[in-house]
């Protein structure tokens, strides 16, 4: 029933314009004919063509994708275990230290995390490459997964698990057949979060990568440090497109699921 006042309508318009205009401009200028990004010289898709002929970018993209897939999957397993231990594990030795180590990476500046991991890899003599980036990304992604999953675990009714145990499940059975399906949305969002964080990360990857393996953000960073380039605009537009489609699909499917569940609940 409520309608927006002019004040609220204005602040929403200005706020969202601020959030979206720079990206819209970036996408528009990726179709610019001119090499100069600030002067419009007609519509062209030539920078997309250039981009797909640039093997350095393609290689970096492939490395990044593999790193993100592997590290986010590892992080999801470790993070879900960590969340379960934190919320349901009862007391154990060093629990405070454990929860501290889960939360600290979330607030610690990337430069410090990256530096410390690099020093570790050097100390143990591990050659820097894809493996070290995966290790680094898994470490901070698992903390995000753990926080997302544990907030879901905290809010769900413990008696559901107890009912499963009461009906003859072993602890593992109860986790697999009751707990996991209920926390599944959180586990999936945790994975997605880890995946995008890994795709996005520049600072930690810069510390953890070696000359043999460069990720896309590192490549982009070294290119844009010098100035604006239409090729990067094209690459950015592709990434923005992927994310937009992904997030919208995800939110529509979850919304559908919620609506369906509500309808089923109403029907009974």
């Amino acid at each position: 029933m409520r309608r927006l006042s002019w004040f609220n309508a204005t602040s929403l318009t200005i706020g969202f314009a601020f959030l979206y205009l720079p990206m819209v401009i970036l996408v528009i200028y990726s179709f610019n004919e001119s090499k100069l990004v600030t002067v419009w010289a007609g519509f062209s898709t030539k920078w997309y063509g250039e981009l797909f002929r640039n093997e350095a970018f393609l290689d970096a993209a492939w490395v990044t994708l593999r790193v993100a897939l592997i590290s986010s999957t590892l992080a999801t397993v470790l993070g879900t275990a960590a969340a379960y231990v934190l919320v349901r594990g009862g007391k154990f030795f060093g629990k405070t230290l454990f929860s501290g180590m889960i939360y600290a990476p979330l607030v610690m500046p990337d430069v410090i995390l990256g530096l410390s991991l690099l020093l570790l890899f050097i100390a143990v003599g591990l050659d820097r490459g894809m493996l070290t980036i995966i290790l680094a990304h898994t470490t901070f992604s698992m903390c995000y997964v753990a926080v997302v999953v544990s907030s879901r675990l905290v809010s769900f009714d413990r008696s559901l698990e107890e009912a499963a145990l009461d009906l003859g499940c072993t602890a593992w059975d109860a986790f697999r057949s009751v707990t996991l399906p209920i926390i599944a949305p959180a586990v999936i969002s945790g994975w997605l979060l880890g995946f995008t964080l890994s795709l996005d990360d520049l600072v930690i990857a810069s510390f953890a990568s070696g000359p043999s393996s460069t990720t896309l953000p590192i490549k982009i960073f070294s290119a844009v440090r010098l100035g604006v380039s239409p090729e990067i605009n094209a690459l950015s537009s592709i990434l923005i497109g992927f994310v937009t489609i992904g997030v919208i699909t995800f939110s529509i499917t979850t919304k559908r699921a919620v609506v369906r569940r509500r309808r089923e609940e109403n029907a009974t």
Binding site: M23, T38, D200, V224, S236, L239, T244
Partner: peptide, 16 residues
């Protein structure tokens, strides 16, 4: 939504 898209790109978009 912007939070999910690349941080680097969002900073870069202001350069132009």
């Amino acid at each position: 939504l912007p939070f999910w898209s690349s941080f680097l790109i969002r900073v870069y978009s202001w350069k132009a």
